[in-house]
Amino acid sequence: MNTRNPFRPVDETARELALDLIAQARFAALAVVHPDNGLPSISRIALATDSVGWPLTLISDLAEHSRALEANPACALLIGEPADKGDPLTHPRLTLHCTARPIPRATEEHTALRARYLSQRPKAGLYVDFADFRFVRFEIVDGLLNGGFGKAWKMTREDLCPPSDQRTT
């Protein structure tokens, strides 16, 4: 058994890379546990950030991943896409382990997130107010950052909190 630790100590470079990946992400792969069979399932979702830089999406209640998140809010996001050229494994990517938190409609939080989301994803204006769509904020538990070959970091929630984030929960 190989007991060698592949992770580097988290430093400011790793923090900046992870926060940049979150801030620049337009979409992500969302991993959930399927409620019917307990198997993992993955979907592509649009992604934006809330006012302090945490991941946010707008999803339909009709989507299978919505039902899965209702049954079990534990999920993971994979953020980061390879460039058009080169080995895809040399490009940075970030796995975030999260808890999905749906945002109730008719709240101040929903109103603020709606404005924020539409400023980042204006085409969502076509469906943002449909009755089956709702915002989901992803509360980060921890993450795994891969900066390319030989560059891996295991990151805590605190490592992934934007500097302006004052969250206590």
Rank of each mutant, 00 (worst) to 15 (best):
T57S: 15
N2Q: 14
A112L: 11
F130Y: 15
A106E: 15
R134N: 05
E108I: 01
A23L: 03
A28I: 13
A68G: 05
G86M: 10
E81D: 07
S41T: 00
N5W: 04
D11V: 06
T90V: 15
D87Q: 10
P9S: 02
K85V: 13
R167S: 12
R67I: 00
D84M: 10
V141N: 06
R137S: 15
H97A: 12
L17K: 00
N37M: 01
D159L: 00
T168A: 04
A31Y: 09
C161S: 12
G147P: 06
A63F: 07
C161D: 07
T99I: 14
V10E: 02
R15V: 06
I42K: 06
A29L: 13
D61M: 11
C98K: 11
D165Y: 08
N72I: 10
L78D: 12
I22S: 08
R114P: 14
D129T: 07
T90L: 08
P35D: 02
T49L: 06
P163D: 01
G53K: 04
L89T: 14
A29I: 15
S119N: 01
S41K: 10
C161M: 11
P88D: 15
C75G: 12
D142L: 00
I103K: 10
T169F: 14
Y127D: 15
L69G: 09
L39N: 02
E70G: 14
C98E: 07
L56P: 03
V136G: 12
D36C: 03
R157P: 01
D50Y: 08
D159Y: 00
S43R: 12
I42G: 02
S60D: 11
S41E: 11
A106P: 02
V32H: 13
L96K: 03
L145K: 01
L58N: 13
E158W: 04
L113D: 10
L113P: 00
P40M: 04
A29W: 12
Y117T: 08
L56A: 09
P163W: 08
D142G: 00
C75I: 08
D142N: 07
T95E: 07
A106S: 12
R15E: 00
R105D: 13
A23N: 05
N2I: 09
F27T: 00
F27V: 01
H91W: 15
L69H: 03
L126C: 09
A63S: 11
K154N: 01
L118R: 10
G125P: 00
H97C: 04
H91R: 07
V10S: 05
L69F: 09
H110K: 06
L118T: 04
G143L: 02
G80P: 11
T111S: 15
F133Q: 05
Q24G: 13
I103W: 08
P88A: 15
L17N: 02
S43F: 10
E108C: 01
N37V: 03
N5Q: 06
S51D: 11
L96M: 11
R134C: 09
T49M: 04
N146R: 03
I59E: 15
L19T: 05
G53S: 04
G86V: 03
P162G: 08
L118K: 09
V33T: 14
L47V: 10
A74S: 13
L19E: 08
T95M: 13
P102N: 06
T107F: 02
D84W: 04
R67V: 03
V52H: 00
W153H: 02
D159H: 10
P82G: 07
L113T: 05
D20C: 04
A29Q: 10
V128F: 04
A46S: 14
A152R: 00
D129P: 03
V33P: 08
